[in-house]
Amino acid sequence: MTQAAPNAARLSIGEVLDELRADFPDVSISKIRYLETEGLVEPERTPAGYRKFSRADVERLHLVLRVQRDTYWPLKVIRQKLDDLDHGIVGADDEGVLQVPRVIMSSDGLPSAETFTGGPHEMRFRRAELLQASGIESDLLAEAEQYGLIAPSQETYSESDVVIAKTLGDLAGFGLGPRHLRAFRTAADREVGIVEQIVEPLRRRRDVGAAASADETAHHVASLSVVLHSMLVKNGLRRRG
């Protein structure tokens, strides 16, 4: 069987131009070269110096040209948005609006194992973006960080941090500030400790599926612990009612 050449999936600049012209009739080879010069796309080069574009390069050019056409953003802003995308940091969309992450719940409205799963494609937020997405003020975020309710990683925040921030904003409307909610942080740490006691023996196993099995177990046990907590609070309120 004949193997495909390593560059079989790579396109020349002329082939890229033909693809782009279907949506952007005014695009030219000089325009593509200019976008490369500006660092918005980085095609490979053959030993002879010819450009070879991957499918990801073509999609990137589509994105740049669409944003230029639809938003008139300067290249500096587009370059920053692409950098955010590359690093998993979500920015505002073309309308300047951020999508607020939702907690994944089961059909009965309680946390499920999927609530606790993450992944390499989880959105990351800068400080200003978290404030915009959650609707809280900077002072409340600073207080939440002070009391350990929100903890940024490398100056960015997770989807869960956004949901926590929004929840803190809602609770603030009832006069509950982060200093009143430290017990929740302590209780959460205790629950994490219980989960870790269960899954640690699984993590120490040497079989191929040990890590995946440990993660799956952790997610299920965590969901069960939160459901138990929710129902205990529900029953407690019922008894007081």
Rank of each mutant, 00 (worst) to 15 (best):
S213Y: 03
L75G: 08
G109L: 02
L85V: 07
V208Q: 14
L131A: 08
R203V: 11
F125H: 01
L75A: 07
D83S: 13
L35D: 03
R182Q: 15
G135F: 06
T156M: 01
L237A: 11
A56M: 09
T2Y: 02
T186P: 00
D161Y: 00
S134R: 10
R69F: 01
P25L: 06
E95S: 15
D57E: 06
Y72M: 11
D70V: 11
D161P: 07
V67G: 02
D26A: 15
V233L: 08
A218G: 13
R127T: 06
M105P: 04
D93I: 06
R182N: 04
P120Q: 07
L82H: 01
S230Q: 11
S153W: 02
P201E: 06
L130K: 03
G209D: 14
V67R: 07
D26G: 10
E15M: 11
A172F: 00
L40P: 10
T186V: 14
R124N: 10
G173Y: 03
V100W: 00
H220I: 13
T115D: 01
P120K: 11
H219R: 14
I89R: 10
E36R: 12
E38R: 15
S107P: 03
S138I: 12
L110H: 04
D108Q: 11
I32A: 03
L17C: 07
Q197T: 14
A211W: 01
V41H: 04
Q146L: 11
E216Q: 15
D94A: 13
A214F: 05
S225C: 13
L149K: 07
A210P: 09
G119A: 08
Y157R: 05
Y147Q: 07
